[in-house]
Simulated assay, not measured.
Amino acid sequence: MNGNTGAVPFLDLVDINAELQTDLEVAWKAVLQHGRFVGGPEVERFETQFAAYCESRSCVGVANGTDAIELILTALGIGSGDDVIVPANTFVATAEAVRAAGARPVFVDVRPDTLLIDPAAAAAAVNRRTAAIIGVHLFGQMVDVPALSSLADRCGLAFIEDAAQAHGARYSGHPAGSAGRAAAFSFYPGKNLGALGDGGAVVTSDVKLADRVRCLANHGRAAHDRHRHELSGRNSRLDSIQAAALSLKLARLDSDNARRRELMRRYRESLPASFQPVAVDPAAEHVHHLAVVRTLRREQAGAALSAAGVGWGVHYPVPCHRQPAFAGCDERIPVAEEAATQILSLPISPTLDDGDVVRVCDALRGV
């Protein structure tokens, strides 16, 4: 569900990439000259940089964030007969990846303040089939890592991070990508760290797990013999030009995230009282991939924003357990279901200026 774009675009990827146009053109020419479009030197360089940024030991570039989750599960041996706990409030890709790996997604509720997975709900869902918990760092904020890690340790489960919306986020000082057994990142163009097309990565400090992910993602090839296929794998690799673009953007990720935090601070100061931003956990350093507020008058708000030429969105209007693709889950998940009727995403991007926030808030005052 999206509104139109105009005076204040929801996200202006043209402007974001224009600031790096000269450097991107140089990078593209370098790839053209060496001709290694897949697995070129740019990939290894970015993997090294991003692993260090996440304070982790290994990074494996893959085709997209959904593949990253599936590859983690497969590399851990999680599949048929296993349950994986997933928050109902997430993009459908989280659950899709669980099913693609052969496991069953078990949907649980979220906290009413942050709308992130509720550790108590996750604990209540654990059974003898449960193999993993996926903590989704949604909207740019990390989940309650200590609570979920403790639960996973007590029950002998893998704690996996879905960090597709949390590049640069931290919890108690620890970055996304360093908290779980492994983390899945997406570099879809609209992300805080976005490529020029699809891309993703698996980040982990378990070197053996990283090696297995890399093998699976490259047709199961042996590391030192490309004609030997040790596993039944797949094709999920990061292109050289995408890696080059990501290296350029990684250098400015922290400053871009700081600008997002400043814009969100201004929203909190200026929004009408009937629009309440989703809470930030005191232990979390939010990177505000999305500026999500709650309102009882979303339809009217969307109409007012569209009339003012302001882009907007809803992330997400239908919880995963209510999607037709996952029919059969009859259990009510009340917090996620209520939030889905109230949440509204406002424009937020490093390219917005303070006046854009004023225009957005002014458009909402009459609602």
Rank of each mutant, 00 (worst) to 15 (best):
V8K: 05
N17Y: 11
E19R: 10
L24E: 06
F46L: 02
F50S: 07
F50C: 03
E55H: 01
E55P: 02
R57L: 14
S58V: 01
G61L: 08
N64G: 04
T66E: 14
D67W: 15
A75R: 08
L76C: 13
D82M: 05
A93H: 14
A93W: 13
A95L: 11
A95K: 13
E96M: 12
A100E: 13
A103H: 11
D113I: 09
L115H: 08
L116Q: 06
N127A: 04
I133T: 04
M142D: 02
S149C: 11
S150P: 01
A158Y: 11
Q165S: 13
Q165I: 02
Q165V: 12
A169F: 09
P175F: 09
G177P: 01
R181M: 06
A182E: 03
K191R: 15
N192W: 05
V203Q: 08
T204Y: 07
S205Q: 08
D206M: 00
D211G: 13
H227G: 14
R234G: 11
R234H: 06
I241F: 14
I241T: 10
I241R: 14
L246A: 05
S247W: 03
S247H: 04
K249E: 07
L250T: 04
L253G: 07
R259I: 05
R261P: 00
E262R: 15
R268K: 13
E269Y: 04
P272S: 06
P272K: 08
P277R: 12
E285L: 11
V293H: 01
L296D: 15
R297F: 11
R297E: 15
Q300R: 15
G302D: 02
S306L: 10
A308Q: 04
P317M: 10
C320G: 08
D330Y: 05
V335K: 13
V335R: 15
E337F: 11
A339Q: 01
D353E: 09
L364N: 07
L364G: 01
